[in-house]
Write a protein that binds this DNA or RNA. Structure first.
Length: 211
DNA sequence: TTGGTGATGTTT
DNA sequence: AACATCACCAAA
């Protein structure tokens, strides 16, 4: 069981202004936080994927800046939200300096606080302990649970609405594994997916291989 | 448990 | 035409 009280320190801007693959790996185990009215939503990030802009044919920024992906080119520490498959939103953490179109897709979160609100956002009238594993186990599912949509595109993660924190009272370093990315047709040779080893809160997509 | 498919709008 | 997805159903 977890503590109901989440104590964490908000990550500073400098966390995001580093090489994207390092940021991606270091995001595993961090806390995705959102304030909704008086409620706090919190979840542990257990699965991410790095997208490396012009070096990466799978990245939205591969062909340069457009209206849709302009947030990816801002300086690190913002949220890039996009709409896909006609019905889903996915969110990314923008990394590196202004002008570099890199980002890290948040793929799965382990709910820690605000479980009832997340369940309601997912369209469940109520949710059991069992449902918890599937509540945020996918990029579109976690956006729905956190209420992240078009309006949240560009949100500064150094602000008070949505942010990422580091747990202060945990000393165990998360065991991070990596694999190829899920749901892409190009760039499949790179092991740019990072995840918390043995977490039951991950997405169900299948990677091509493990490293 | 696995695999196939439809839903649905935006981008190329 | 493809898409950084998901829920549902059928088959085994």
């Amino acid at each position: 069981m977890y503590s109901k009280i989440i104590s964490g320190r908000r990550l500073p801007r400098t966390f995001y202004l580093r090489p994207t693959l390092k940021v991606a790996k270091d995001l595993i185990g961090k806390l995705l936080m959102r304030r909704m009215h008086t409620q706090i939503l919190a979840g542990r990030i257990v699965e991410v994927e790095a997208y490396l802009g012009e070096k990466d044919p799978a990245s939205h920024a591969f062909r340069g800046m457009t209206k849709r992906n302009e947030v990816m080119f801002q300086n690190g520490g913002r949220l890039y939200v996009y709409f896909t498959y006609g019905m889903h939103f996915c969110c990314n953490v923008v990394t590196e300096e202004e002008g570099i179109g890199h980002a890290v897709l948040l793929r799965a979160v382990e709910p820690l606080e605000g479980f009832a609100v997340m369940a309601r956002n997912r369209g469940l009238p109520f949710a059991t302990e069992r449902d918890k594993q599937k509540l945020c186990s996918g990029p579109a599912k976690l956006c729905e649970a956190y209420g992240i949509a078009r309006a949240e595109n560009g949100t500064d993660l150094c602000g008070n609405e949505i942010w990422i924190a580091e747990e202060t009272d945990v000393e165990i370093k998360p065991r991070v594994d990596r694999s190829t990315r899920i749901g892409i047709a190009q760039g499949r040779e790179h092991n740019w997916r990072f995840f918390l080893r043995d977490s039951p809160y991950m997405s169900k997509g299948k990677p091509v291989s493990y490293q």
